[in-house]
Amino acid sequence: MKKVLLLLIIVIAISCKNEPKNEVKAVVKKVEVKKEIFPEELGQVFKAHGGIDAWRNAEILSFKKGEEVHTVDLQSRINVINAPNYAVGFDGKEVWLDETEKGTFKGNPAFYHNLFFYFYAMPFVLADDGISYEKIDPLTFDGVVYPGYKMSFKANIGSSPDDNYKLYFNPETHQMEWLAYTATFMSKKPSDKFNIIKYDKWNDVNGLILPSEITWYKKDENGVPTEPARPATVFTDAAISKNDLTESFFSKPVK
């Protein structure tokens, strides 16, 4: 009996040894890291304003310009401007306008709905996809020499692909201080006429350094800024927040 039992134990042991083992395969999850293509100097500018990673991870940006409340989904760029007598926005498919009384909104909704978002979100919007960069001659103002870059859009990028921008930054702090730009939305033709804005007052918005006011300047015959062209445009109540908004927030109100 003992011999039979011993033989049975040996057979079971051999059988278990010969059974195929279940292999556990490690699942390697690939994480795609966005490769930045802007120049290193511009990377220092973005860093001085809170960092490009912080900007790319931000979800909802809101700020006030006068009585207008601008709200932008930074991931999709859908947006809405709410004012006492009108609202204008982009829902991802079309630009819309809603007025309490016809004619209360002055301007072109397609042009205006994200106009001040672009001015306010400088310099970060100049890291968007489809932009080409070129080092340009510096701008000198009040004895300070500001290094600069020209940005142009690749074909069919955005609603005004012929627009060009020139960003000039402080050589010591790397903060942006001047923006020159062309406006081609209406004409749909390239232009070499640059408007220029001074950025010199900033606000810390959840770690991102964004403007609290900007000032359009007059220029001399060489394109060098001389004096303010009009009072500063002031931005208040800025915030970066998580996206807990419904899609209807950015849609035209149903009446």
Rank of each mutant, 00 (worst) to 15 (best):
P20K: 12
V234C: 03
D244V: 15
G66C: 14
L7T: 14
E213Y: 08
I197G: 01
K30L: 12
P161E: 15
F117V: 01
E19Y: 10
D91H: 08
P225K: 03
A110T: 08
G43R: 07
F119Q: 03
D162G: 03
V254W: 04
V254T: 15
D129N: 10
F194Y: 15
S187W: 12
F235V: 03
I78A: 02
S76Q: 09
V125H: 02
T215E: 04
G89W: 08
G50M: 07
D53S: 13
A121Y: 08
V254D: 12
V144S: 07
V24W: 05
K219A: 00
K154V: 11
E227F: 07
T182L: 11
S160L: 08
E247S: 14
I157R: 13
K166P: 01
E172Q: 07
R230L: 04
V205I: 08
S62N: 11
N18R: 12
V125G: 00
N156F: 14
I157L: 03
Y112E: 09
S132P: 02
N85E: 12
P171A: 03
P161C: 11
D162M: 15
K166C: 09
N206W: 10
E23K: 10
E94K: 07
V125W: 12
K106F: 09
D162Q: 14
K3C: 04
L208N: 02
F63R: 12
K135T: 10
K17G: 08
A54Q: 06
S152K: 13
Y199E: 00
N206Y: 07
P161K: 11
N57P: 00
Y199N: 01
K166W: 03
V95W: 05
I136P: 08
K242Q: 07
D220P: 00
P138N: 09
S191H: 06
D162Y: 15
V69N: 10
K25Q: 05
A238N: 08
T233C: 08
K25S: 10
E67K: 13
L7I: 15
P84G: 01
E101R: 06
K188L: 02
A121L: 06
R77K: 13
N222D: 00
D137I: 06
C16V: 13
L5V: 15
A232F: 06
F235L: 02
G43K: 09
L97A: 07
V88D: 04
T140C: 00
K34P: 03
T71L: 06
I209V: 14
E213P: 00
V33C: 01
I157A: 01
P171H: 08
D163A: 00
F117Y: 15
D237R: 10
Y168F: 15
H49I: 03
T246F: 02
M176S: 02
F153L: 14
K2G: 04
P253A: 03
N164V: 15
F63Y: 14
K189V: 07
A183V: 14
N82H: 11
L74W: 06
E36Y: 15
K188H: 14
I10D: 02
D91Q: 10
I78Y: 07
P39C: 01
P109G: 02
K106I: 05
M176F: 08
A127Q: 01
D192M: 03
T233L: 09
Q175H: 05
E40M: 06
N85P: 07
P225S: 04
W55N: 04
